[in-house]
Design a binder for these strands. Structure first.
Length: 872
DNA sequence: CACGGTACTTAGCATTGGAAGG
DNA sequence: CCTTCCAATGCTAAGTACCGTG
């Protein structure tokens, strides 16, 4: 191994430096420059650490995570992505009490070490208090067990096996078996047991869900439209046409009847009046969601019920590359003109009031409105703002105002605060008026007609002027974002449509009729010089088709992913540097779901990277770390300056390659100097039609969801428990994709509130239980009807409260686990909605529990077409 | 192939509105 | 009925991908 490596090293390496292209040299120069800037920035940053919002933000996230990690004291070092897994494992390992106590002690110690983290401390304290509320010593054990049960709702020992399997599969997904050997052994055993288990359980279910062989056949049968319209030829599975609508309708009707039949099944083990009521509500909801549309569909001939229920996915689609044939709309809604401040609101310069000209005042108000934000204290922000502000000043103002630090905007700021306060305090009538006005605007401007259908527009308002705030450490923060005038706006619509009219006395920059694009309105923004668009809502045909197609591409990747993985593993051994780099990068993209990492213009945006643009400084190699070998530590800022931090053990070959790539490089050099996204994507295109780097993210996200749902859902759980399982599966994906969020400002408080509720419930429960006991004794004594009734009443009450308590605890768990994880992004952009729809149908979970109204609109196609046996 | 430009998806944060709770 | 609180929605920045051109 090493021999073969050494040889190649030299070969590869000799090419590496000598053949440096001009581009690379230039790049290097730039980098040096940037690096200096970078360093300066860093120093500055260090000096005024407390001032740096972003950094603090991400640091904090990091700190929390580190703590989490330490708390868990895990040998397996890979953090972010596997945090969830770890937690889970932790939970499972300690199902016997003695260990629990040990763990608590350990936690205690960890807690003491971290005297700085106020947040964590707070949370821990809370936990502590909760713990102390229990009076006897067995508390911890009891609580943990209880939690466990609620979480898993498994009735027997199959829990562990169940979980282990899931982990197993996750690991095997990437078929790099080199890791976690000692754990593996144990799992191997469990796996066997599981196999038996699986066979059993599938019989119990009554629906022997055969694996793929069958799944595919069935899929072709049952799914009304097996794949979306192709843009590029999609050979095997797709003839480029939708099945005929007629055919679909029959299928649909059949399914509706089926649903109807199954309905009684929805009756679960709920009891008590309230539960009944709730059940009734479910049914009612269903009636609204399911039956009404059916009725409407039947009435369709009689009444005209057009756009709302248009099923574009049942129609054929033009193949000539045009996006539409007809497009008519009313144009954008422009930002309201500036309203000068009332006379009593003053701006002070150097302690003296100064009346500003309208343009200068407007820009000043932008700053004033942001005064509460930390970034108005940042040097860069203030500098950029001041520079742009001066451009709006009269020459007199320019000469008077020479130092931004002498400007006092507070009175203006107060005024705006008062205004927004007043808005909140408005009477109902006034609020209603505003609402109606908004509704009118929506009706007028919010829709367009595209090919005979009325479609909702996404963002029909032109962005108002203001101060630009980029994310992270953006060099342009604070710059003035100009007001967009009609003269800046390009309109796109059909030649034969009624063109939108510009406001009186103005004209559009251009009216064009380009049906190769989907946008209705565009303009060029002045900060980055990029083009902004007005496009249709996600529920529209044009977006939906694209979305559907995206998932179909990902499904095609599923079919050949094994081949691809074998390929890149082979390429790790290539003689050519560029191929090795490509292969390693692809491995990262596949395994870690990294983004592609386009090059960006330096100095124009925050310094963030993706896979191909990773720099040497972003990874660290550890030949040995704890009990693992070949660990790579990633630490960089990704999209939106969200930090990606992860330690992952990799295969030896990858590790050696990385060492090779790092040779003779400076920290600010590119890790993959022979690679960029276009090279990578070109390569991918050759491997599979339509394949690009981002497809891997979609694929891995969706497949993970499907697997996790399979593993986490247990048939006899209650609905809330199932939803928790769903969220857990969703969360696994969000962690994979590194979808983070700042913990909500009110997080601690809301957690506390919830905990209070839980405690109250618990008290209530024990009181009611006592009452039940009392009633029983009384009944035993008297044996009369009244006391018998009483017992029944109390019994039901206990049951009801237990249920409520459980639900609350589920909620608490869910929220706690979600503290820094955003589920929305993956749900909206990465998870094939048909997986969720199938799951919902399989387990009779009301779809509203996982998709809100907007999401249901966006995924209408999936909700309509996916059956419960849908396989991604 | 670099590069500038365009179109479209993906992203997190701020605000809002309406349900739950008092 | 009013207030509180959170999920839904709105907003727009920041990515990916790909094209034409020289």
């Amino acid at each position: 191994m090493s021999g073969d490596h050494g040889e190649r090293d030299s070969q590869v390496n000799s090419g590496s430096r000598a053949n440096d292209s001009h581009k690379h040299k230039d790049k290097h120069k730039d980098k040096e420059h940037r690096h200096k800037e970078h360093k300066k920035d860093k120093e500055r940053e260090k000096a005024k650490y407390s001032n740096s919002e972003h950094r603090e933000h991400s640091e904090k996230k990091h700190r929390d995570k580190e703590k989490e990690k330490e708390r868990l004291k895990h040998s397996d070092g890979s953090v972010d992505r596997h945090r969830e897994k770890q937690k889970e494992e932790e939970r499972l390992k300690h199902s016997d009490g003695s260990v629990d106590r040990h763990r608590e002690k350990q936690k205690e110690e960890e807690r003491l070490k971290h005297s700085d983290g106020s947040v964590d401390r707070h949370r821990e304290k809370q936990k502590e208090e909760e713990r102390l509320k229990h009076s006897d010593g067995s508390v911890d054990r009891h609580r943990e067990k209880q939690k466990e049960e609620e979480r898993l709702k498994h009735s027997d020992g199959s829990v562990d096996r169940h979980r282990e399997k899931q982990k197993e599969e996750e690991r095997l997904k990437h078929s790099d078996g080199s890791v976690d050997r000692h754990r593996e052994k144990q799992k191997e055993k469990d796996k066997e047991k599981r196999r038996e288990e699986k066979v059993k359980s599938s019989h119990v279910e009554g629906k022997p869900k055969k694996e793929k062989e069958n799944g595919h056949a069935r899929e072709m049968w049952s799914s009304p439209s097996p794949s979306p319209p192709p843009i590029k030829s999609e050979p095997e599975e797709d003839n480029g046409l939708y099945p005929s609508p007629k055919h679909n309708k029959t299928l649909k009707r059949e399914r509706d009847e089926e649903e109807f039949e199954y309905k009684p099944k929805k009756m679960k083990t709920e009891n008590g009046k309230k539960a009944k009521k709730r059940k009734q509500e479910y049914e009612d909801e269903e009636e609204e969601e399911e039956i009404k549309p059916k009725k409407k569909a039947k009435d369709k001939k009689a009444k005209k019920e057009p756009e709302e229920k248009w099923k574009w996915w049942e129609e054929e689609r033009s193949t000539d590359g045009s996006k539409w044939k007809f497009l008519e709309h009313k144009g954008p809604v422009l930002a309201p003109p500036y309203e000068p401040l009332p006379g009593h609101v003053r701006f002070f310069y150097d302690g003296k009031p100064l009346r500003l000209s309208a343009p200068a005042e407007e820009v000043a108000t932008f700053f004033a409105k942001m005064l509460d934000h930390e970034y108005t204290t940042k040097d860069m922000f203030r500098k950029n703002f001041y520079k742009d502000w001066r451009k709006e000043m009269t020459s007199e103002e320019k000469s008077k105002i020479t130092d931004i630090n002498k400007c006092n905007f507070t009175e203006m700021s107060e005024y705006f605060k008062a205004q927004s306060e007043a808005r909140k305090q408005m009477s109902k009538d006034e609020k209603l008026k505003i609402k109606e006005e908004n509704e009118r605007i929506l009706q007028e401007y919010g829709f367009c007609v595209m090919d005979n259908h009325k479609e909702r527009i996404g963002n029909f308002r032109i962005e108002p002027p203001g101060l630009f705030r980029g994310r992270g450490d953006h060099p342009k923060m604070g710059m003035l974002k100009r007001r967009i005038r009609p003269e800046d706006i390009i309109i796109n619509c059909s030649k034969d449509s009624k063109h939108p009219k510009p406001p009186q006395g103005t004209r559009w920059k251009e009216v064009r009729h380009d049906n190769k694009v989907t946008w209705l309105v565009s303009w060029t923004e002045n900060i980055q010089g990029s083009i902004k668009y007005i496009m249709l809502n996600p529920s529209s045909r044009i977006k939906g088709e694209k979305d559907w197609q995206k998932y179909e591409t990902a499904r095609r990747l599923k079919k050949c992913v094994d081949r691809l993985r074998a390929q890149y593993r082979e390429d790790w051994k290539s003689k050519e540097m560029r191929i090795r780099q490509r292969a390693v990068a692809l491995y990262f993209i596949d395994k870690l779901a990294l983004r592609a990492g386009n090059e960006k213009e330096e100095g124009e945006t925050a310094d963030t990277v993706g896979c191909c643009s990773l720099r040497v400084e972003h990874i660290k190699l550890y030949p040995k770390m704890d009990d693992q070998e070949y660990v790579v530590e990633f630490d960089f800022l990704g999209k939106d300056s969200i930090r990606y931090y992860n330690k992952m053990p990799v295969e030896k070959r990858v590790f050696k390659n990385l060492q090779l790539f790092l040779e003779n490089k400076q920290p600010e050099d590119d890790l993959f100097d022979r690679l960029n996204t276009s090279i990578l994507n070109k390569h991918l295109q050759e491997l599979m039609d339509g394949l690009t780097a981002k497809v891997f993210r979609t694929y891995n996200a969706s497949i993970t969801l499907q697997q996790q749902l399979k593993e986490l859902t247990s048939p006899d759980e209650s609905i809330p428990a199932k939803i928790l399982s769903y969220n857990r599966a969703n969360r696994a994906v969000a962690i994979l994709c590194n979808h983070q969020r700042a913990p909500p400002k009110t997080f601690e408080k809301s957690m506390q509130n919830l905990q209070t509720k839980i405690d109250e419930k618990q008290k209530q429960l024990s009181t009611t239980r006592k009452q039940l006991k009392g009633a029983k004794t009384e009944h035993k004594a008297s044996h009369d009807d009244r006391s018998k009734k009483m017992v029944e009443v109390k019994r039901k009450a206990v049951q009801r409260i237990e249920e409520q308590l459980m639900k609350l605890q589920m909620q608490a768990t869910d929220r706690e686990e979600n503290k820094q994880i955003a589920l929305g992004t993956s749900k909206l952009n990465y998870l094939d909605p048909r997986i969720s729809v199938a799951w919902v149908k399989k387990w009779d979970v009301p779809i509203e529990k996982i998709y809100n109204k907007t999401q249901r609109e966006k995924f209408a196609w999936a909700i309509d077409m996916a059956e419960e046996d849908y396989e991604f």
